[in-house]
Each structure stands twice: as C-alpha cells, then as structure tokens.
Amino acid sequence: MESPGPSRRALFRGQFLTKPVALIGDGCLAEAGIFCRSCGDACPTSAIRFLPRIGLPPQAVVNEAACTHCGQCVGACPSEAITLGAARHGGAS
C-alpha cells in the first residue's frame, strides 16, 4: 500500500519523502526480444525514452526527473513489468 505522504512534522523539518517513479522490471518485453513501446506512448510527459541496442529492440529507460508518477505506463504495459516505486538515482536515467 502506498504511503499517504510525509507528516506535517516531517514537512516542517524539511524531511520530504521522494515521490514514486516508474520502475521497469526484467519482465519488459524488450528484454525478451519483442518490440514494444506501449509505456512510452502512454506517458503524457515523455519521461520514458528508448535507447537503441544492436540486435535487440530498444530498451525503455525512465527519466526520473520527468516522471510525474501518474501511472499511465503501468496500465499500458502488456507484460505488467512496470511498477511505481522509490527513485533509484534521484534524477534522470
């Protein structure tokens, strides 16, 4: 279950929690050699980019700074490989 957010006390102390971002797991169809861009097409902020790879479909990568945690990509993923979770790098990937 997702956290309701930081408490008022944490906000006053400057202890902000990081917002969740899209995380692409190993179940991504591109990792199985299948061309898919469903998540990128569904993302309203274009936070998901596709890196070209030789001999394989492009790899989906999330720009964590641009991700608004709307969840559109989660519902669009046919392999259910995308979840919302804590940022890995705190910035663009």
Rank of each mutant, 00 (worst) to 15 (best):
Gly90Val: 09
Gly14Val: 00
Cys67Pro: 07
Cys39Ser: 06
Arg49Ala: 15
Glu80Ala: 05
Leu29Tyr: 10
Leu29Trp: 01
Gly75Asn: 15
Arg13Pro: 05
Arg88Thr: 09
Ala86Leu: 09
Gly40Pro: 02
Cys70Tyr: 05
Met1Cys: 14
Ser79Gln: 12
Pro20Met: 04
Phe50Pro: 07
Arg13Trp: 13
Thr45Phe: 13
Ala86Thr: 14
Cys39Gln: 08
Gly40Phe: 02
Gln59Gly: 05
Leu29Ala: 14
Cys77Trp: 06
Val62Gly: 02
Pro20Arg: 12
Ser38Leu: 13
Glu80Arg: 09
Phe12Ala: 05
Phe16Lys: 08
Cys36Phe: 02
Ala47Glu: 00
Gly14Cys: 04
Ala47Asp: 03
Pro20Asn: 08
Leu84Cys: 06
Pro44Phe: 14
Leu17Val: 12
Ser93Val: 10
Glu80Asp: 10
Leu23Pro: 04
Asn63Cys: 12
Ala60Thr: 10
Arg37Phe: 15
Arg53Ile: 14
Val74Tyr: 08
Met1Ala: 13
Cys73Arg: 01
Asp41Asn: 10
Met1Leu: 11
Ile24Glu: 03
Thr18Met: 03
Ala42Met: 07
His89Phe: 15
Ser3Thr: 14
Cys70Ala: 05
Gly85His: 10
Pro20Leu: 10
Gly91Lys: 10
Pro78Met: 02
Leu11Met: 05
Cys39Leu: 09
Phe16Gln: 05
Val74Met: 04
Cys39Tyr: 03
Met1Glu: 14
Arg8Asn: 10
His69Glu: 13
Ser7Gln: 06
Ala66Arg: 01
Cys28Asp: 00
Val21Leu: 01
Cys28Leu: 01
Ala76Trp: 03
Ile82Ser: 00
Ala22Val: 01
Thr45Met: 11
Arg53Gly: 04
Leu51Met: 14
Glu64Lys: 01
Gly5His: 09
Pro52Asn: 02
Ala86Cys: 04
Cys43Lys: 01
Met1Thr: 08
Ala92Phe: 14
Cys28His: 00
Asp26Arg: 15
Ala65Glu: 09
Cys73Asp: 00
Lys19Ser: 13
Leu11Thr: 02
Pro58Cys: 05
Cys73Lys: 01
Thr83Gln: 06
Leu56Ile: 09
Phe35Lys: 08
Ala42His: 05
Ala30Cys: 11
Phe12Trp: 12
Thr45Cys: 11
Pro6Phe: 10
Ala87Asp: 12
Thr18Lys: 10
Arg88Glu: 11
Cys36Pro: 00
Cys39Lys: 02
Pro4Phe: 04
Gly90Trp: 04
Cys28Trp: 00
Arg88Ala: 09
Ser79Arg: 11
